[in-house]
């Protein structure tokens, strides 16, 4: 209902950003800058090239998951299964990569493919089941959370899979001009998602679906396939995140990723995307992921206790949503 909404949702076709769109993201951006300033003053280590590289690496997985989650939340859904799907995709890829008789390049290619396929299939399943029967995605993906986790444990026999080709591991810690390659992958993914959401017919309909499912249906568009597509994208990103996870840690653990879904949802919501759908942007999600990552990093540098850290993170999530509420009101009319 806000004018700001129009900027992100209604006029994606227009070239560049309008002032209001910038204003909208500016709130989150300012919060991020505020955090950065506080941490820079409080810790000499914070604003160093090394630490910046670290932060970028650390937010990568959450950013990838959050980009996929943005699609699902924009249509008014939720995907609680991404953490477990990540584990399943990692284990499947881990099995693939350790298949005997493969050269390193083949093994890596197979693993990447396996993780993407596993993630995508889980996403399709989430989408088809919830859209076909019109069931709340909260419940369906909660089911998938357990199915994928169980499958990951079953396939791996609850054991961590390790010993991947050296090349794969190298990719995990590769940097270009100080920027981690894995982060660049995430950034590229975010850019593509932003293009899709703001410049394509599909993106327009995703926003439309979150605002008014009936209006989209009556205009002759298939609501079913749109929903399936959103969940499929989310599953696909979980698969990509699994690959990054493996490359970074050089293991595939069936218990990987527990709780990742909540971090991804938090990034999306802090980024100003409405939980009821139809409103938000990938740019916001990017900033949201940064806020979570910077907070986690900075609070450790400050030497705050684990429990204080947890509390502060909780407070920041709530404050971000309250701020968003006011921003929505301010830009009204």
């Amino acid at each position: 209902m806000t004018a700001a909404v129009t900027d992100t949702a209604g006029k994606p076709g227009s070239k560049g950003f309008s002032i209001r769109a910038i204003m909208r993201e500016a709130g989150i951006g300012l919060a991020l800058i505020g955090l950065i300033i506080v941490f820079s003053l409080a810790s000499e280590h914070f604003l160093t090239a090394n630490n910046i590289t670290n932060i970028l690496t650390q937010i990568t997985i959450n950013l990838i998951l959050a980009v996929g989650m943005t699609f699902v939340i924009l249509i008014g859904g939720i995907d609680l299964s991404v953490g477990s799907v990540l584990a399943l995709a990692a284990v499947v890829a881990g099995k693939a990569i350790s298949m005997p008789g493969l050269g390193p390049a083949e093994a890596i290619a197979l693993a990447v493919l396996a993780a993407m396929v596993a993630g995508t299939l889980c996403g399709i399943l989430n989408g088809v089941v919830s859209a076909w029967w019109g069931l709340p995605s909260f419940i369906i993906t909660l089911g998938m959370l357990n199915i994928a986790r169980g499958a990951a444990l079953q396939i791996s026999d609850a054991r961590t899979i390790y010993s991947f080709p050296v090349e794969f591991n190298n990719f995990g810690s590769l940097t270009v001009w100080g920027l981690p390659v894995v982060f660049l992958v995430a950034l590229g993914l975010a850019l593509v998602a932003w293009l899709v959401l703001s410049r394509t017919v599909f993106g327009r309909l995703i926003y439309g679906l979150g605002n008014s499912e009936e209006a989209v249906r009556l205009a002759g568009h298939s609501v079913f396939w749109l929903k399936v597509a959103a969940f499929t994208i989310c599953g696909f990103t979980a698969g990509i995140a699994a690959i990054i996870y493996m490359a970074r840690l050089n293991i595939a653990s069936p218990i990987a990723g527990s709780g990742f879904e909540l971090n991804a949802i938090a990034a999306v919501i802090i980024g100003g995307t409405s939980l009821s759908g139809g409103r938000g942007s990938v740019l916001g999600t990017l900033l949201g992921a940064f806020i979570i990552g910077v907070l986690a990093n900075g609070l450790i540098l400050l030497g705050l206790s684990d429990f204080m850290r947890q509390m502060i993170t909780g407070v920041v999530i709530i404050v971000a949503v309250i701020l968003d509420h006011y921003r929505a009101k301010l830009t009204k009319g």
Binding site: M1, T2, V5, T6, A9, G10, K11, P12, G13, S14, K15, R199, T200, V201, F202, G203, R204, L205, Y207, G208, N211, S212, A215, V216, A219, G220, G278, R279
Partner: peptide, 26 residues
């Protein structure tokens, strides 16, 4: 779709007319 622009609403049933290869032409 109340939150969307007049332009987006006007084209909702005729998106093929305002897009090319799936990309919207603002």
């Amino acid at each position: 779709i109340l939150d969307m622009s007049i332009a987006a609403n006007s084209s909702l049933a005729a998106l093929d007319q305002v897009s090319s290869n799936g990309f919207l032409l603002g």
